[in-house]
Every structure is written in C-alpha cells, then in structure tokens.
Design a protein around this nucleic acid. Structure first.
Lengths: 203, 203
DNA sequence: TACGATATGGAGGGCCACCCCGTTTACGCA
DNA sequence: TGCGTAAACGGGGTGGCCCTCCATATCGTA
C-alpha cells in the first residue's frame, strides 16, 4: 500500500520522485529477497535501487514493513484463493487445498514464510491490515467451514495450521529440493487435523 | 569435544590456559544463548568470558561450532534417552515419547533447534559427529522399530520427523508461551505418522 | 519564474564478525 | 630450577550492517 493510495483525504499524494523511488526500492527488494531470503541486506537493496539508504528507511521504517509491501500482492492472491474455495462443496478438501497453496507460495517466494510468521508477534502496532492478519482472516473462514463439516478437529485453530505450514516452509528454505520436502511434511502434518484420525500417543 | 580428547595420538593435549579459556567461553556462550537465542553476539560471549574475540574465533571458527559445543551434552542426553527407549515394548509410543523429549529440550534450550536444523545443510565438512548426525542416528533406530511394529508409515523418514519437530520449535521460539503451542502443534503433526491414519486430501 | 514544502543521500555513529601480528605464557627439558 | 620455544593470547584494524541527521536538491504551484 503506497501511502498515496490511502483513502484519507487529508493525505497528499506522493510527489513524483518519491513515488518513483518507492517503486524502485520495491523492485530491488523483491530481487534481493528472491536471491538471499528475508534477511537480505537493506543497504544492498538501497544500492540496487540506486537510492540512498536514508530514503529506503524513510519509505519503510522497518524490515517488516518492506517485506509486507513486497509480498502484499502474493498475500492478496492467497486471500482470493481462499474466497474462491469458500464455495467448494467439500470444505475439508478446500482447506487442505488452500494450505497447500499457502505452502507453495511460501516455498517459491523466499522470505514470504518469514514475513508471515514475524507478523504474528513483533508486528508493530498502529499498522492495520498486516499480511499476517489478512491471511489469518482468510483462512479462519475455511477452517470454520471444515470444522462444521466435521473435517477438522474443533480444537485446531487457524493460527496452529498456518504456524505449522510456515514452520515447515521455513525449515525447508535452505534445502536444495525444498518443494519436495515441504510437500511430504505438509501431507504428514495435515493428516492429523481430521477428527476421525487415530489418537496420538505423545509423551 | 574439546580438541584434547581426540583419540589420535599425534595431537598434543591442550595447554592449560587454552583449556581454561575454552571452558570459560563455553560457559559464557551457554548463558548468552539462553538469554538471547542462537543469534547472540559472539563479541559479547567473548566479553563475558573475559577473553579476546580472537580467542573465541580460534577455538570456534564458526557460530555453528560454538552452538554444537554448547549443546553437545543436551544432544547426548537425547541420544541416551533414545537408547533407553529402544527397549520399550511399544515402539510407536517410544518414538512419540522421544520426539516429545526432543521438542521439550528444543523449546527449553533456546538455540538448540536452530543448531540441530542448521547442522543439516551448511554443516561444514571435515567435522565428524555433528549434533545433527548424532540425533538423526539415534532416532533412526526408534523409527525403524516403530515402522516394523506397524506404528509408523514406511515412507516417513527420521529426517522428516526431526525437521517437523525442529520447525515447530523454531516457529514457537519467539512466542510467550511457546511450550503450550509446541505441544499442540506436535500432537497435531504426529497424528499423521501412523499408517492406519486417514488419508490426507492435500492439494 | 520563484518560492515553500517535500524528498534526497552522504556522512557519521554504534554494533558486529573476522583477521593480523606483536606480545605473553605455559610446557618440556637440561 | 631456569630457559628456549612453540603455543596461545588479545588489542586493534577492516569492512559490513542498520539507522539517523541535516545541508542540499527537486517538485509542484501560484
């Protein structure tokens, strides 16, 4: 959300040069993050964008803000997918499909998982619709339906599921063929959410 | 493994001062990591130990090496637990118990999960028994038994399981009541490993 | 065109990992 | 016990990072 697209009328539109730099930084950040993950050097992002580091910090006061801007449209995609799946006649399958989509996005966009996860805790306040809350809201509906259809245990929360998915993707990020591993692990993990599943004998 | 305990006769024992500093660094590192996690500043570790930073780097050429040294005995504990559980009449329960123990260790020792996970990929070569391989070996046996007793799906690998456990613990590390979350997530995830479990409808 | 509001980025501070190399220390032997 | 040497030490340097300040440049408008 570039600042000039806010609905509040009191906010002036960005100046053209500011807008240009904002976009350049975003592009550069996307590249750098794709190559080096969520921990990419902000200084290098600025360098790639041909911009002073102060400019980067003015537009994005924290790494988290930058990540959220970079991944905003991916997250919106996922929310849209969730909305579509809400109409699926099989809510259990819909939920599983969606979680699979989340995982695929997270694996193929380095840093996304980290971004979604971080948002959970140290998300800075006074920042409305973070990626984290967006995606949580989107998934909550799918889970509720699955639950009503007796396709998910009632004690499972959407936070649990997303944490699990993100944890797996994060764990797999430094892995040559992460996609494969993420897939097996997710399949494995998701088997546990169905109510008729066997009781686990843990501890 | 402090260098002087190697079996090779050609290696001289450490000098007393070196030994002393090695131990001091290890203690300081354990404290710092307990407080700040696996990313604790090495410089501060050296400061706490009352040692120059060069000394720290001489003894532990990489952060990973330091982590491994710090957690070595914890990992040995886990291996011992695994050895005990190998005699359990119920191999499925034994495996679950052990994975629970791994999780508990990882949650209560900040940095352990990170250490075990990192060891998997960028572990530097020419470094024999890393924590990662130690624990993998220990668990492989339990899993094999569980599998033979039809208490685990044959296509599940010990790497899968440990990755899952570590991923969960890592995800939960920045969480106020991590133990609780780790527990639910692990229970959830482990339900999927039993062969008679319901088929997952993923993707 | 000229002016005020806005945006910029170089320079600098604080912190960090890692290394170089002159100095100190412990050990083994006479 | 005293001494020579190999081993260990650590101060200080390098370069990178994140972040902030403020003198300067640029934009949009009257």
């Amino acid at each position: 959300m570039p600042p000039d697209s806010r609905t509040t009328a009191s906010v002036r539109p960005m100046r053209a040069d500011a807008r240009r730099n904002y976009d350049r930084i975003l592009t550069a950040a996307a590249e750098a993050i794709a190559e080096q993950g969520a921990e990419a050097s902000l200084e290098e992002v600025a360098r790639r964008a041909g911009v002073g580091s102060a400019t980067l910090h003015r537009h994005f006061p924290s790494r988290q803000r930058l990540l959220e801007a970079v991944f905003r449209d991916k997250v919106e995609d996922l929310c849209a997918v969730a909305a579509d799946l809400a109409a699926d006649p099989d809510p259990g399958r819909a939920l599983a499909t969606w979680l699979g989509a989340v995982a695929r996005h997270a694996v193929s966009n380095r840093g996304l998982a980290a971004s979604l996860m971080r948002g959970a805790h140290d998300g800075d306040p006074a920042w409305g619709a973070t990626c984290h809350t967006m995606i949580t809201d989107a998934g909550a509906d799918l889970l509720a339906r699955a639950c009503r259809a007796n396709a998910a245990r009632p004690e499972v929360s959407i936070t649990d599921l997303l944490t699990l998915v993100n944890a797996i993707c994060l764990a797999v990020e430094h892995d040559p063929d992460g996609t494969t591993h993420a897939d097996r692990l997710l399949t494995l993990a998701l088997t546990g959410i169905r109510p008729e599943g066997p009781q686990v004998v843990n501890r």
